[in-house]
Design a protein around this nucleic acid. Structure first.
Lengths: 352, 352
DNA sequence: AGGACCCATCAAAACGATTCGACGTGCTCC
DNA sequence: GGAGCACGTCGAATCGTTTTGATGGGTCCT
């Protein structure tokens, strides 16, 4: 018990060489069933639990680990069911590849104050940047310097990184067209953060010109693609219900109240919906509300959000496939997933 | 680029021995500032990004990784904010120890159909079983066979495992006393799963006798400690809002409607609350509702659940400390965290 | 001036496995 | 009956680092 039993011990006990014992476990290479069972029996009596992963890893040069870099606080990152579902798909996907999932907090502050040392030192064969990596992210730089292959999700991709994303611009265009067809003309939008400075409130034109995060930018552009010019672009610092509620209160109690509000996430949209209920407004009678992501939010009952569904589970699996491709030495590619508009109970004809 | 540069290369370039180069990086042992910078410069020009973790790990015998075993599906496990917050606390805590967090799916089906191979093969220095491990869990058995030190959270502990838990029995007693003091006599309870068979609905006495999961058992016992004998014990297969709603509908539309409902989690309680609203019942006028965990649920606005607060973040940190202790070779202990009753807007005097 | 230290450096031995090439067998085929 | 072949086994090298014990030169003390 004190000194862990090693493959050499097992080999000695079984009366074979270390290499043969190794073959008995790995199954690679020819070995007679007789010796194989002999080795396995010896392992059994010695309480040997299979080859030490550390030794195997060093020799093979592979850690068997995929580093998943999430936002600086897990609590904040995982408060959004979107992340969870993607992570779930990813986990099952890479598990079937025999890989483990290392969770790495990684602030992408370009000030590079203090980079999580794990990013630089932890053993990982591939890294997945789960949200909106920006090109100036120090995490990205550190990983690239280490030569770790990178999969970026919904961000801006650098040379040689794989990218997985959805058609969010198209999705938003669909919502815009849907609302226009219903006769809406005064449409406001509640957006995801433009930048990491935590700004909250209506964005002035100047702020709209340089948006750091791709997601907010693309989704806003999608709305414009439909020909919708939002009366107000209300920015939030995170995708949280309470921030949606705050935005909803502000937008819905203004004198020139919009007839429709499009939020860039379902969590924000549900906040807006709660604000509308709170103000005694009928949805969609007085105001239509649409979101993005296609989450299942039971506590919104009996309402069902009109939203753009993205295949979150599939997204995770696709990330897993990208990981496998990179490990196999294939060239990194960009894959874009389809989305679909699903009309719920929260959008209807514009009030006359 | 093809063959990764190694410490030996750096040493050669700097004109020193490998051991000296190692010292330059690790900082252990004496080394002159001059040679140190010389080595670091050589590393810089060669693009060497510090010692290969795999080599270091093999030599030191430590992977620098804590395996966190969660339920069989991340999506289901992390749907509850409770888990997220604990994980967040744990992540920051072990990060400060310089350790990484390996997420491992682990079904604890005692049938042992197919154990996640990661449990048996992945490199980890300590394992944390995040929810309600039962003593017959094959995951537990596999880890113990490997000789991996184990921290169990809210489960039944085996010999030699550390255990972190909260005073949930006391917490439930507090809720029971609170309701009794308000004059409630017909009190029903909505519970977490007793077992993993997915049963849903009122539990008959037979079922109450063998409850596999500690949490449900202890929380139910706490209510009884207060002298409350629930009129109905409504079991749910998971801590989900919609299951709470279903339970609430059933309990609140029955002829001998209870005047108070205690749920074993805030998510369940909020579901019950939604059901009450749906049925047009006044809370707490017609029925009082209490939960457990102390979550911040903004979408319940303007209601605030009466609940027992448990220090989730602290819990995560405490798990981290237990991990550190085990790594330092200290003897595993059991730590129990305090809880406190926080009265919200959802409980009031029993209707006359 | 000589001996006792001390400090920086180095060589070599782990750490635990995988894998390549070599080496015997025992068999088949001509 | 001899040459060739396939199969199973083994020895040795290798992965990249850390760490221990030894070595050498310099400094300080007596």
């Amino acid at each position: 018990m004190s000194a862990r039993t090693t493959l050499a011990d097992v080999a000695a006990a079984a009366g074979v060489s270390v290499s043969t014992a190794s073959l008995a476990f790995s199954g690679a290479g020819p070995i007679s069933p007789a010796t194989r069972t002999k080795v396995l029996e010896a392992a059994g009596t010695l309480g040997y639990q299979g080859p030490n992963p550390l030794g195997r890893q060093l020799r093979s040069g592979r850690a068997g680990i995929v580093g998943v870099v999430v936002g600086d606080s897990l609590r904040r990152s995982f408060r959004d069911p979107v992340s969870i579902q993607v992570l779930d798909g990813l986990a099952t996907s890479i598990e079937s590849l025999g890989l483990g999932l290392l969770l790495v907090r990684g602030s992408d502050e370009p000030g590079a104050e203090e980079l999580n040392p794990l990013v630089a030192t932890a053993a990982m064969d591939v890294a997945v940047l789960l949200w909106g990596a920006t090109t100036d992210s120090p995490v990205l730089a550190a990983l690239r310097a280490r030569g770790v292959p990178i999969v970026v999700v919904e961000g801006r991709v650098g040379e040689g990184d794989a990218l997985i994303r959805i058609q969010d611009r198209t999705g938003m265009r669909l919502i815009g067209e849907h609302l226009l067809a219903l006769g809406h003309r005064r449409i406001a939008t509640v957006t995801l953060p433009f930048d990491r400075d935590g700004r909250e409130g209506p964005a002035d034109p100047a702020r709209l010109t340089h948006m750091r995060y791709e997601i907010a930018r693309r989704r806003l552009a999608g709305l414009r693609d439909a020909g919708v010019e939002p009366t107000v672009v209300y920015e939030t610092p995170a995708s949280l219900v309470e921030l949606g509620t705050a935005a909803g209160r502000a937008l819905l109690s203004s004198p020139d109240r919009p007839t429709a509000i499009v939020a860039q996430s379902d969590l924000l949209a549900s906040g807006v919906l709660l604000a509308a209920r709170e103000l005694g407004l009928s949805v969609p009678g007085d105001v239509s509300i649409a979101g993005f992501d296609g989450l299942d939010l039971p506590w919104l009952h009996p309402d069902v959000l009109t939203s753009v569904h993205q295949p979150l589970q599939t997204k995770g699996e696709l990330i897993g496939r990208a990981v496998a491709d990179l490990l196999a030495g294939k060239k990194p590619r960009t894959r874009t997933l389809d989305v679909s508009l699903v009309v719920g109970t929260t959008t209807g004809p514009a009030p006359v």
